[in-house]
Design a protein around this nucleic acid. Structure first.
Lengths: 345, 345
DNA sequence: TCGTTTTTCTAGAACGATTTAGAAGAACGA
DNA sequence: TCGTTCTTCTAAATCGTTCTAGAAAAACGA
C-alpha cells in the first residue's frame, strides 16, 4: 500500500505516467474506456490520487489560502466577529474547493525562517486585523503571495475589504453626543493589560489601525467630550468585563462606555449587571460589530456585514473574475436599549 | 524577484545548493560565517526561504494537520463548542509550529478525486464529529494519514479522544428523573429539518454517533419516560429555537427539553423567553457541552473539557512522545437554575 | 486516394527542494 | 610525524507529479 505512485499505476495498466495523470486531471484527454481502466487499477492498488505536495510543486497551486490572525490562533476563535469572518471566507473557499490554512502568527523564529507563514504552502492569504507593521506581512510580500487585508493599508496596491472605520465610529459618536454624553470610556484590545491589570492608554499606544481610526471617529463626532481609552486585556469578553469593572469601581465614572468590539461591550455589560446598573438608564453602553449576541443583549452597536466581508475577501483571493480589489463595505448604527440620555449633571 | 530558488542563491554565494539548504534547516552543519553570508545574499536576492511545496514533497512532511468537520465549514464556527475544540488544537499546533488546514467536506466529486481531503497536503488529521460512514474517512485511511477522532470509532486501532457519551447523558437523565420528569423532548442536529420545518425522528434516524449515544444514555437513566427526538435543523442556535418553538406551540408540551448541544438549548431558551416561560420553573431546560454562554444563561448542562479535548487530539497528532492513543475525558453534570422539579400532573 | 485535422497517447524535461554518502582539509593525540 | 577524528562542504540521486511538444493512429473532406 505504501509507495504506490502514478508510475506504479501506469506500469500496471501499461500506459505512460502522463496518461494516468490525465485520467485524474484532464478526463477529456483520453478515451473513456482507458480512464475507467486506469481508475479501477488505481483503486485495486490502493492508490488514492496524485500526491498533494508533488502536484502543488509541479503545478504551482497549493489549493489552499492562508488566514492570518492577530495574536494567538486560540484567541481568534473567542470573538464571534472573527468567526463570522471565517465563516464567510470558508463559504467561498468551499465553492472553489480550496482549503483554509490557519497560520499561527508566533513571533519567534521569524528570522530563522522556521515560521508558519514562511513554510505554509498557500496560494493566497487573508489578513485579518493584523497591524500593518507585522513582519509576517513582509514575508508574504516577499514570497509574492497575493493578500487581502481587512484593514485599509498604506500601500495603494494592497487589496482590502474594509469599512470606513472613522465614519462608522463617528455615527456612533454623534448618537452619543446627541444623547448628551460628554464623558466616555473606550474599551480597547491591548496586550499590555493582558496580565489582568487594566491600563489607560493614549491614542498612539493603541496599536491596531482599526481601533485607532474608530477612536478618531469618536473624537471627531464629539470634540467636546472627554475620551478615556482603557484596556482590560486582549479582545475578549473577560477583558471587557475587567476593564469595565475598573472604571465602574473608580471614583470617576463616565456616563457612557464604548467597547470597540461587541465581545468587550458584552463583558462590560456583565460588569454592569453585577453592579445592578441598568444599561441605557444608569449608564450608556455601546459596542461595535453587531454580533448575534449583541441583538439578544439589546446592545447599541455599529453593524458591519462581517460575513459578507469574509465572502468578499474570499472572492478577491479566489475568483479570477472578481476585478474589484478594494472594497468599502457599508456600516449602520443600530440603536438598541443600552444607550440612553446622559443623566443631567 | 520571481524565480529565485535555492540554486540561484547557491550560485550567487558560490556554494552548493545543499549548503544553502543546510543554512536554513541544519545551522550546525556549516560555519556561522558562511551561514550569515548565505542568509544575507538570500535577503538581497529576495529569496524568502525554501519553497513549501518542494520541501513538503522531498521531506514528506507538510507542516500542517487537517481538520475535518461535519457539514459545511461555515456551520462549524457557529458553535462555541467546535470553536473551543479548535482553539485547543490550535494551541498545540502553534507549539509545534504546524498550521491547521480546515477542509471543506463537500460530498461532491469524491469519486473524481477533486476533493479537498484528497488534495490536501497534510501530515495528520483531526476528525471532529464526523459520522463514521463518511467517505472522507476512507480517503484518509487510504492515503495512510494518521487521524484522531472525537468519537470512539468502531475500529480498535483508530485513535480517539472522547467522552463516555452514554454515561454523561445518563447523569443528566438521572438528574431529570429525580426531578420527576417523565416527558422529555430532545433537540438534535439533523439535515432533514434544515429547511426550517422541524421533524420528529426515531433513534436510528439521528445519524451522528455521539447524539445516538447520548439519547441511549438518557433512555437508560429514565426508562419510564417518554422521549421524543425533535430537530429544528443543523446544530445551531436558530435550529434549537425553531425546534423548541414547534414543541412549545403544540398541544403536547413536555416538562423538560434537552438540547444535545448548548447552542441548541440556548436557542430553545430564547423561544421560552419570548413565550414568557421561566426555565426551571415553568419548564426544565438542559444542554450539553457547557459552553461559556451556558453559564451566563444559567443553563443546566453536561460539562466536557472541550479545549482540553482539542489539546489532547493535537498532542496525539503532533507529539511523538505522546503514547496514549485513546483517551477518555471526564465529564461533569453542572446543575444550574434552568432545571427544576416537574410540575405535578 | 491523399493531404489535413482530430483524437489519443507518450517521452522527457521540469518543478525546487532534501538526503545520502563521501571528499577535502583542519585539528588532534600519541 | 602519522593515522584518526572532526568539521565543513559537495555531487548526484531522488521525491511524485504536471507540462510541453510531438508521434501515431483514426477520422474527415474533397
Amino acid at each position: 500500500m505504501a509507495g504506490v505512485t502514478l508510475k506504479t499505476v501506469a506500469k500496471a495498466v501499461g500506459v505512460s505516467p502522463s496518461t494516468v495523470s490525465n485520467a485524474y486531471n484532464k478526463p477529456d484527454q483520453l478515451s473513456v474506456a482507458l480512464r475507467e481502466r486506469i481508475l479501477n487499477t488505481a483503486r485495486e492498488l490502493g492508490y488514492s490520487g496524485p500526491d498533494a505536495s508533488a502536484r502543488a510543486l509541479r503545478s504551482g497551486k497549493a489549493g489552499a489560502v492562508g488566514v492570518l490572525f492577530t495574536d494567538k490562533l486560540a484567541y481568534a476563535f473567542s470573538d464571534p466577529y472573527a468567526v463570522g469572518f471565517l465563516a464567510g471566507l470558508a463559504e467561498v473557499a468551499e465553492e472553489f474547493s480550496t482549503s483554509l490554512l490557519l497560520m499561527p502568527l508566533s513571533s519567534t523564529d521569524i528570522a530563522g525562517g522556521s515560521n508558519a507563514v514562511q513554510q505554509a504552502a498557500i496560494d493566497a492569504a487573508a489578513i485579518f486585523c493584523v497591524p500593518s507593521g507585522n513582519p509576517a506581512l513582509d514575508i508574504l510580500a516577499n514570497r509574492g503571495i497575493p493578500a487581502v487585508s481587512t484593514d485599509r493599508g498604506d500601500h495603494p496596491d494592497l487589496s482590502w475589504v474594509a469599512i470606513d472605520e472613522v465614519e462608522a465610529a463617528a455615527q456612533l459618536g454623534e448618537h452619543l453626543a446627541r444623547l448628551g454624553h460628554r464623558d466616555v470610556v473606550v474599551l480597547v484590545d491591548n496586550a499590555e493589560a493582558a496580565g489582568g491589570n487594566p491600563v489607560e492608554l493614549s491614542v498612539d499606544q493603541v496599536g491596531y489601525t482599526d481601533c485607532e481610526l474608530r477612536i478618531q471617529g469618536l473624537q471627531k463626532a464629539m470634540p467636546d467630550a472627554r475620551l478615556r481609552i482603557i484596556s482590560g486585556g486582549h479582545n475578549a469578553f473577560s477583558s471587557g468585563r475587567t476593564g469595565a469593572e475598573w472604571v465602574l469601581d473608580s471614583q470617576d465614572r463616565p456616563t457612557a462606555i464604548v467597547g470597540l468590539s461587541d465581545v468587550q461591550a458584552l463583558g462590560a455589560l456583565e460588569a454592569m449587571r453585577v453592579r445592578g446598573l441598568i444599561p441605557g438608564r444608569d449608564l450608556t453602553l455601546a459596542g461595535f460589530d453587531d454580533i448575534p449576541a449583541a441583538e439578544a443583549a439589546g446592545l447599541t452597536t455599529v453593524h458591519q456585514p462581517i460575513r459578507e466581508k469574509g465572502r468578499a475577501v474570499g472572492r478577491i483571493l479566489l475568483d479570477p473574475t472578481a476585478t474589484e480589489r478594494q472594497l468599502l463595505m457599508p456600516t449602520e448604527l443600530i440603536v438598541r436599549a443600552s444607550s440612553g440620555p446622559a443623566p443631567k449633571a
